[in-house]
């Protein structure tokens, strides 16, 4: 009974904390949208990712970092207390949430691996890697420039795209993809795809779409800061965009859009127009290193505070758990 109660509590706490934190995402998103003109695309993408990933991180921390030690420490192991209906319901919802996450992520991995396998079957590697990343030219594929792989990135390029782009434009497109690799956007996508998107919280899907568009803008800016000409990048976008359009890719990828007029291509074309007219400064467009340092410091402080406050907090947490059990 002790272990069953413990498991139910962990699941229930994870579900409650996830939902409460997810609900606070909406005001956070509104604040970000209100001040979006003040932040660069890279910073906005980082914020959106944090807003989306935080509910799960806090859910795990609260359940495994607080509820579990509190229960272990203060609950007598010979307890005969039965989980009540509310606790069982919350635990069941927690189970559904976790199963859903595993289902989504296994599906994503399967689709991605199948796609890569299919491309690799029809692909030949280009003689030179692009800045250390292997590039494959795929025959018989719809117009494509994409980077696949979370830990071992590979760039795939379709033959029609390779034919239509000149060397500068091709390098610009590859530099854009390289920017995604350096900001680990595929790993972030992995996390985002895993996140639950309850139907009654539709704005969570909007955050994913916004992140998708914003990360594209950030990759453009990063490529430009690293020396890519905005003109070449724009030409590459125009040519590949037209190829995609001609090949019949006219449907909107609904899952990546907030509304009909804000597809990543639309937003990027507008953004590149702005960059062509005003330019982008390296300080503004390269916040990743500062962000990494800032967040490492924050994580260290939070961990220290957690360790210091843990023994003081545990009795309070246990009292709160008693409330859920009853």
């Amino acid at each position: 009974m002790f272990y069953l109660l413990c498991l139910c509590l962990i699941l229930a706490v994870m579900f409650i904390v996830f939902m409460l934190t997810a609900l606070t995402s909406l005001p956070a998103l509104r604040v970000l949208l209100a001040y979006r003109h003040l932040v660069r695309a890279g910073t906005a993408a980082n914020f959106l990712f944090i807003i989306r990933a935080l509910p799960l991180v806090l859910g795990i921390v609260a359940s495994l970092g607080l509820a579990l030690p509190a229960f272990w420490e203060f609950e007598p192991s010979a307890t005969h207390e039965m989980p009540g209906p509310v606790l069982l319901l919350l635990a069941g919802l927690g189970v559904l949430m976790i199963v859903g996450m595993f289902w989504r992520i296994s599906r994503s991995v399967w689709v991605t691996l199948s796609l890569q396998r299919m491309w690799l079957k029809n692909a030949s590697p280009l003689a030179e890697n692009f800045k250390g990343i292997p590039v494959f030219c795929v025959k018989d594929s719809a117009s494509l420039v994409a980077v696949a792989g979370i830990f071992v990135p590979r760039i795939f390029l379709s033959q029609d795209v390779a034919d239509v782009l000149n060397t500068e434009e091709l390098n610009a497109a590859l530099a854009h993809e390289l920017a995604h690799v350096s900001t680990k956007d595929n790993l972030r996508q992995f996390v985002l795809k895993m996140m639950p998107r309850p139907q009654f919280l539709p704005f969570l899907s909007d955050i994913d779409s916004l992140w998708s568009s914003t990360s594209e803008l950030a990759a453009d800016e990063r490529a430009i800061v690293k020396g890519t000409s905005p003109l070449d990048l724009s030409s590459a976008l125009i040519k590949v965009g037209r190829l995609s359009f001609q090949r019949g890719s006219t449907l909107l990828a609904a899952s990546h859009l907030v509304d009909g007029c804000s597809s990543a291509t639309h937003v990027r074309a507008g953004h590149l127009r702005h960059l062509l007219e005003h330019g982008v400064s390296p300080e503004q467009a390269n916040p990743t290193r500062r962000w990494t340092r800032g967040w490492t410091a924050c994580a260290a402080v939070v961990l220290l505070l957690y360790l210091l406050a843990l023994w003081t907090l545990l009795p309070e947490v246990h009292d709160a758990l008693e409330f859920i059990v009853r």
């Binding site: 989504r104 599906r107 994503s108 991995v109 689709v111 991605t112 796609l115 117009s143 494509l144 420039v145 994409a146 980077v147 696949a148 979370i150 497109a173 854009h176 993809e177 995604h180 690799v181 956007d185 595929n186 996508q189 992995f190 795809k193 990360s215 990759a219 003109l231 724009s234 030409s235 590459a236 976008l237 125009i238 590949v240 965009g241 037209r242 995609s244 359009f245 890719s249 006219t250 449907l251 909107l252 990828a253 609904a254 899952s255 990546h256 009909g260 007029c261 597809s263 990543a264 291509t265 639309h266 074309a269 507008g270 590149l272 127009r273 062509l276 007219e277």
Partner: peptide, 30 residues
């Protein structure tokens, strides 16, 4: 939308007619 679960970063996603118009404008500037 059910299958948009692939983990990929694409240079260009699906292009609609609205996007095409925007690309035309960008082309003029380029």
């Amino acid at each position: 939308s059910e299958n948009s679960s692939a983990i990929l970063s694409r240079f260009v996603e699906a292009v609609s007619e609205t996007d095409e118009e925007m690309l035309e404008k960008l082309d003029e500037i380029v």
